[in-house]
Design a protein around this nucleic acid. Sequence first.
DNA 1: GGTTGAACCAATCGCAAAGTGGTTCACCTA
DNA 2: TAGGTGAACCACTTTGCGATTGGTTCAACC
Lengths: 247, 247
Amino acid sequence: MTDAQNTIQDVENSSYVLRQLRFLVTNGDVGSNGKLPTERELSETLGVGRRAVRRALEALEAEGLVWRKQGKGTFIGQPPDPTGALAAVIAGQTRASEVAEARLYIEPALAGLCAARAKPDDVRRMRVLAERTHQTADRDAAELWDGALHRMIARTAGNRVLLTAFSLVDEIRSSDAWRALREKARSPDTNDLYARQHMHLIDCIERGDVVGAEEAMRAHLNTLSARMKHVIEDAGTVSDAAGGEDD
Amino acid sequence: MTDAQNTIQDVENSSYVLRQLRFLVTNGDVGSNGKLPTERELSETLGVGRRAVRRALEALEAEGLVWRKQGKGTFIGQPPDPTGALAAVIAGQTRASEVAEARLYIEPALAGLCAARAKPDDVRRMRVLAERTHQTADRDAAELWDGALHRMIARTAGNRVLLTAFSLVDEIRSSDAWRALREKARSPDTNDLYARQHMHLIDCIERGDVVGAEEAMRAHLNTLSARMKHVIEDAGTVSDAAGGEDD
DNA sequence: GGTTGAACCAATCGCAAAGTGGTTCACCTA
DNA sequence: TAGGTGAACCACTTTGCGATTGGTTCAACC
């Protein structure tokens, strides 16, 4: 066996491990919390050294496919957003009206920054998300796509602090009590209005119209807020008569 | 011993415990983390029942002098703000320009809401804080008073979510790296300008002028931001050429 | 020179026991 | 009879320990 052949074998060994792990990550049966087998287990299962497993995992981590933490393990995807715990604390001290109010300041700010910074590819993806929100007949799916659109706008804005504030609101609104409230506010007759508002917002973002984007987002949120308030009044007392809101 | 005398004795016993604990809380030697002795320990030390100790602690808690948590203990003052941990995480992912930018959205919003909701007593206290900020010769003290003024405006705004966003910024800005940056931006020749800006802001709040308060806060922050940017350019490269800012 | 297995280190987790505040109850006293 | 007390019980938090898991280094081997 020559040096060249040995080098080839090493290279094939490395790519074998990487391929196997990539397959596991994208298709495998991992634990309910996304946990992969330990490095030592993978080393045994794949019949390679632990160092080889580590190298492959390092590559996958660099690609953002897994995250690892010493003492804890290796998991699929990205680490959970750290705002969850704080949101749980704040939620108990927050009324629906405060969340809607905060949203009215935070999301237009993010929309404006997004208009200043979005790239053509970003805008394309926003249009796809908006389209999916309004074309699906499944209400739960519509809500997921809508949430994804708002999150994308927030991320594209490129400000970590404001994104965190947005995430905080998002986490609070994802609680069961909030979900029930939003369930009540759903109505087929507002679908067209929301679709139009979304499109107008994305148009402003595409044009780089900061002020326009802020106002479009503000108008959209005010529509949601009015709708939600209406539902609460119809249904009688719930948690907060000035509550918000959903698309 | 008559009924009247017994009632007096009970009352004196209660006030004895309350007095002792109040003294301990305000002058005592408590642990480095502000932890008081346990209820059972205090009961023994003071020679009263645990129920009496609890009643006294309940009163002190209602006065905001202590906070208590089942399983954890009883501590001086108020519970720590829950944003500290999140701020530590976010700080590492945030540039100075993002913090300054976020501040430009969050603090005017809070100033506007504060203008809508402040009571005469609130305004009086803000004036006291502003006065102290600008009359002390001690720069560190000035910074503390200034911070207290901004925090009071944020609290008076009455929105828990936005207050949390503000606290997040506050925590990030209280880190050592940020403090060093602000140290460099201090200058005696801007003291009058900042004092005027503070007074104008508080005037708007007093009048209930929401838009005026927002614009006053925005102008103030822009002055700070420009000042800080200047310092960074003079000093050459630091962490972020577009950094912010301080009073 | 690169891989490997082994050894060691630092961080995390699970668990049981201990500790701490929260609540209830029976008893005692005036 | 009302209020205080000690005891018991409950729910939550902390602590300490052993086991586990990723992070790093090193010597041996090919």
